[in-house]
Amino acid sequence: MSISTPPAEAAACCAPLTAQPLDADAAEAVVPLLKALADPVRLRIVSLVAAHEGGEACVCDLQEAFELSQPTISHHLKVLHTAGVLDREKRGTWAYYRVRAETLGSVAALLAAPAGVGTSERTPGCD
């Protein structure tokens, strides 16, 4: 796998971590995607966009949820778009963002545990 492979595509190409070890190139290719999602602000942005009416939002729809400037939110949106987590569509002066469900599905598949292994009734941190 090439290091120039887009992060979202890299995650889609990888077998689950529990099925076989990642080689160094595959791990390097997936890191930008996981880093993009690992930031608390960006994780909230993904959640807000996905939950927004119609499943899409622009920066103006997100700004009141954060005590951050519009340029900072735009930066986070750019990181998520570059990593393949969000699609972007320009409409006039605004850019609208939509979650790429296939990317989140690829991350879920990459991190999936084999059936019956490590399962519990509660998800840590979601009490």
Rank of each mutant, 00 (worst) to 15 (best):
R91H: 05
V49M: 01
V117R: 15
C60P: 06
T18R: 13
Q70I: 14
R91S: 03
Y97N: 06
R88E: 01
L110V: 04
R42V: 04
S74L: 04
C58R: 05
A8K: 13
L77Q: 02
T82Q: 15
S106I: 10
A115H: 13
A26H: 01
G105E: 15
I73Y: 14
L111C: 11
R91F: 06
S4L: 15
S47R: 13
A19Q: 11
D127P: 14
S74M: 07
E53F: 00
G125F: 11
I3D: 12
E121S: 05
A51Y: 14
A83K: 10
V46S: 05
V30Y: 04
E64K: 06
R91K: 11
K78V: 03
M1D: 07
R122P: 02
G84H: 01
H52W: 13
T103M: 03
P40R: 14
L34M: 12
Q20F: 00
G84D: 02
E9Y: 00
E56W: 03
S2D: 12
L48G: 07
A83G: 08
A29H: 08
P16S: 05
I73E: 11
A65I: 09
S2A: 13
A8M: 11
R100S: 03
P40G: 03
T93S: 12
T5F: 10
G105W: 12
T5V: 14
H81R: 15
C14N: 00
T18N: 00
P114A: 13
A19K: 14
P6Q: 05
V107I: 08
S2Y: 05
K35M: 12
D61V: 02
A26R: 02
A15C: 09
V85P: 04
A8R: 13
V30H: 01
E89D: 08
P124R: 06
A10H: 14
G84M: 02
S106R: 05
R42G: 09
L77R: 01
E9K: 14
T82S: 15
L17C: 03
A12D: 14
A101G: 10
C13I: 13
A51M: 05
D23E: 01
R42A: 04
V117A: 09
C14I: 10
V117W: 07
L43D: 04
R91D: 00
G54A: 08
G118N: 11
S4P: 02
L33A: 03
G54C: 07
R42C: 09
V46T: 10
Q63T: 11
G116S: 06
P32R: 09
R42P: 07
E89V: 12
G118W: 06
L22Y: 03
A113M: 13
S106K: 06
W94L: 15
V107D: 02
E67P: 09
H52V: 06
C13F: 14
T72E: 04
G125W: 05
R98V: 15
V30N: 00
G118M: 07
A109I: 05
A38N: 08
T123E: 06
A19P: 01
L77V: 03
